[in-house]
Structures are given as C-alpha cells and as structure tokens.
Design a protein around this nucleic acid. Sequence first.
DNA 1: CATTTGCGTAAGTAAATACTTACACATATA
DNA 2: TATATGTGTAAGTATTTACTTACGCAAATG
Lengths: 113, 113
Amino acid sequence: MPATTRRDVFHGIADPTRRQILTLVAKEPLNLNTIAEHFEISRPAVSQHIKILAECDLVRIHQHGRERYCTPNAETLSRIAEWIEPFRKLWESRFSHLDDLLNALQTQTKSEP
Amino acid sequence: MPATTRRDVFHGIADPTRRQILTLVAKEPLNLNTIAEHFEISRPAVSQHIKILAECDLVRIHQHGRERYCTPNAETLSRIAEWIEPFRKLWESRFSHLDDLLNALQTQTKSEP
DNA sequence: CATTTGCGTAAGTAAATACTTACACATATA
DNA sequence: TATATGTGTAAGTATTTACTTACGCAAATG
C-alpha cells in the first residue's frame, strides 16, 4: 500500500465505529483483539476499520510480539481542526474580524483538503 | 424534514465536494445554480450534496423568490471542533503522557526474551 | 399569455462501503 | 511438540454512495 493509496482523513472519521476506536485508544493504547471486544461487530470488521485509520495516519500500529498496539495520531486530527478553524471563527465572531476570516478561507480554497 | 432524518455531520463533511461547497458559501451566500457553476459535476448532483448538507444542518437555505440561497451554519462545524478538541490536547501533551506509555511498551518488548 | 429561469425529484447505474465467514500463519504457551 | 492466541486476508454480499439523464413545476420575464 504505497503513499498514493492514502485515504482522506475526513473519510476516516466519517464512520461512527472508527470514531469510537479513536476515543478508545486515546485513553489507552490497546491491541486489536482488545479493541474488537468493545464492539458488537466481528473481529475482522474492527481490524479492517483500524487498517483504514492507519492508512489515514489517524492511528499508528506498534508491534509487540504477536500483538499489535494501536495508538491515536492526534497530529492528523489536529489538521482536521485546522480546516474547521475558520468556520469556528465565523461562528464566534459573526459580525467582526470579517477580513481575517475571508483571508483564511481564501488560503483554504487553494490548498483544498 | 423532521429530526429523524437528520444525518451524521461527520458524513456531511466526508465528501470533498461538500467541503468545497462549505468554503464557497462561507465567503458569500450563493444560490444553488451559482454554486453548481463552480463544479464539473451536474447541477442535480450539486443540489443533492446541498440537500445532504442541509440535513446535517451544516448549511441553511433561505428562499428568496424562486432562488434559494445557501449559507453555512458554522455552529454545527463548531461541534465537530469540540469532538476533536481532546485529541488536539493529546497532541499538545505528546511529550508527557503518550510518550511515557509508548516508551514503557517499547522497553517491555526489548526486555522480554 | 408564452417563455425562460431556478430548482426538486425520480429512475437508473457503477462503484464504494461495511459487514460476514473461512482460512492462513506466525508467535506464544503447555 | 502440540495447541492456543493474535492477527491478516480473501471471498462473498447487502447496502449506500455519488453520480447521470429526464422530467416537472413554480416564479420571473418578455
């Protein structure tokens, strides 16, 4: 799976199960089977979700013997926060600092995520 | 459109075209046909995207004669930012809590026969 | 009035998604 | 060594997605 197959982070967090996995491993890194125990769906299904999260670089996998521990990569989530930031400013200061907002959005358009 | 049909906001921003629509109308509210002119895809396709955005409450539609203007609802995007916030904090404190966990894990691996 | 404009919606489709079960395989453990 | 454990992956499937074209209708315009 080369870098060209890297998935969209927004797609990564689109699934509710994947978001639950992220919050789960944020509290404590867990191996894949332990993660799967938290869900109703099958173990391979969870494994496939984690694979997608890893391809988005939303989690990192650390091998430990035959176990593979999953930890969140909060840096990637921070990039999503950056995309949202101008909208948050739009909401916070709807009637002021309009120029700053427009500049931020202008930049965002050119480097479309 | 009753509350029962409300869609997941994370699904709303999962599509790149929908994200472009959001940044577009954030700069200036536009009617639907004008929005569609910014994209290669057909007018009904854009219309369907905007319908989804409206169902997520990511945009609001204001009727003005026969035209329908689309404006972003930044409040909903702020809620996404709130979900991300704990991860952002995790990223900020990566040199304390998380690294300790990973180091402990690494040491454990190497020290075991 | 007749025509244009702005938009919704239906029907069809190819591709993607999210699952499932079955199996393979390496690493631990008895 | 034999078995249990942790995990990847393949194959199959039902559902969802993101589009398309075609059509209809109400508001504006001539």
